[in-house]
Nucleic acid binder design. Structure first.
Lengths: 223, 223
DNA sequence: CGAAACAATCAACCGTGCATGCTTTTTTCC
DNA sequence: GGAAAAAAGCATGCACGGTTGATTGTTTCG
């Protein structure tokens, strides 16, 4: 469902940029160019931030001319609007990839899920998202797009966390605790921005997963 | 100690901007102008972000000319370097102010401390800091300054949280849990950037303060 | 051949640091 | 103590570099 929505938005953006009625690039090389530009846009965001990700910088990164970029995305705004949609796809792929190797159950599972969630939030994709997130506060056209992305990723992250943790949200407090876990992961992503925070982070992940496990699976009162 | 350090840095910045050997502005009106500029810089950061906080925008906000700003801060970099130091002072004043009305002890206390920490991280000062934090990743001159500020505020926040919570850090896991609480508060600050997140937040604060209380004050095994 | 895709160039605008000018306050000199 | 000079503080304007969207030119594909 989310993947389908993303593709529809992507096609709409393609229509806008070419002014045509067809469904995106016609040539394979054009599709490849477009992909390269979008990937470069996200990479530049992560490395250079919003202000540093000028169209020229993105083009240099993608190895294409400004004219080529302009063919696909008439304005900087359109470029990053498409990049937002691209980011949603990349995010989902990233989480799916990481979820593959989770242990079966118990405290090891809880630890691994927390570790994974934190890893997602300390990676380059979150970094790019963070830059967009912060920049969107003063970019009216971008704001709505980014707010929608944030909302969607947030809901999806929550859904996946509940699923991976096998958490029962009908138990009072579980829902909020899972949410707190994600907010903490975001905070850790922030803390990793200017310097490597991994040592401190490891201790926090270990402890949080213990606390989380205790909340999700309280000791049996009958035992 | 931190206040003294802040003042020394402030004086050093003043020396730099005037090229003199004296200790900052000589006239009261000059001190007032400087203060206005710095306050405006922080307010603009919170509202417009880094890219939007041009010297012209800050001056308009402060109600001074660009020449006046330039007298105090020769470059944009110097302006925001001083703003960083100013931010540290404002942050401390803010926390002190909020700490005044904390209840005495128990779960109410824990809740109030968590609520306060989260409130600090969802206010305009944190918002300004966040913009600086993110922008600093691609501003070499600013990076070091902001990293130092982040480090200092982080340590101070931790120290105060431990103090206000009357937490015993020799108990295994308490230190990490307090740190995680702060990281969670930062994540909640982030979540409040593009839209009002207060409803979700209230639930998380309530629930987490319960969990935190249970961690800090586990049930007496002898009872 | 025309459309699509890409490349290169242009003009307008903005932000910055620098320079010059004006006003207010402090210091120096008699 | 008062006038003049100097310093401090503030105001205005300029030149430059970078970014952007628009425009024109070239290459590739169907």
């Amino acid at each position: 469902m989310d993947v389908v929505t993303g593709a529809a938005e992507d096609a709409a953006a393609a229509n806008r940029s070419t002014g045509g009625t067809d469904r995106g690039p016609k040539q394979d090389r054009s599709r490849a160019t477009r992909q390269r530009i979008l990937s470069a846009a996200l990479a530049c965001l992560a490395e250079h931030g919003w202000a540093g990700s000028t169209v020229a910088v993105v083009c240099a990164r993608a190895g294409v001319s400004r004219g080529a970029a302009q063919h696909h995305f008439g304005t900087r705004e359109e470029l990053f609007t498409a990049a937002v949609a691209h980011m949603a796809e990349e995010w989902q792929a990233s989480v799916r990839e990481r979820a593959r190797a989770l242990p079966g159950r118990g405290r090891d599972r809880t630890y691994a899920v927390v570790d994974m969630l934190v890893a997602v939030h300390t990676g380059p994709l979150f970094r790019a998202a963070l830059h967009l997130w912060v920049a969107a506060t003063d970019e009216p056209e971008l704001r709505e797009r980014v707010a929608a992305l944030e909302s969607r990723i947030g809901r999806e992250a929550h859904r996946l966390a509940v699923e991976f943790l096998a958490a029962d949200e009908s138990v009072p407090g579980v829902r909020e605790t899972v949410q707190a876990t994600l907010d903490m992961a975001r905070g850790l992503g922030l803390a990793n921005l200017l310097s490597d925070d991994s040592a401190r982070r490891a201790g926090i992940v270990r402890q949080w997963s213990r606390t989380l496990d205790a909340v999700l699976r309280p000791p049996d009162p009958a035992a």
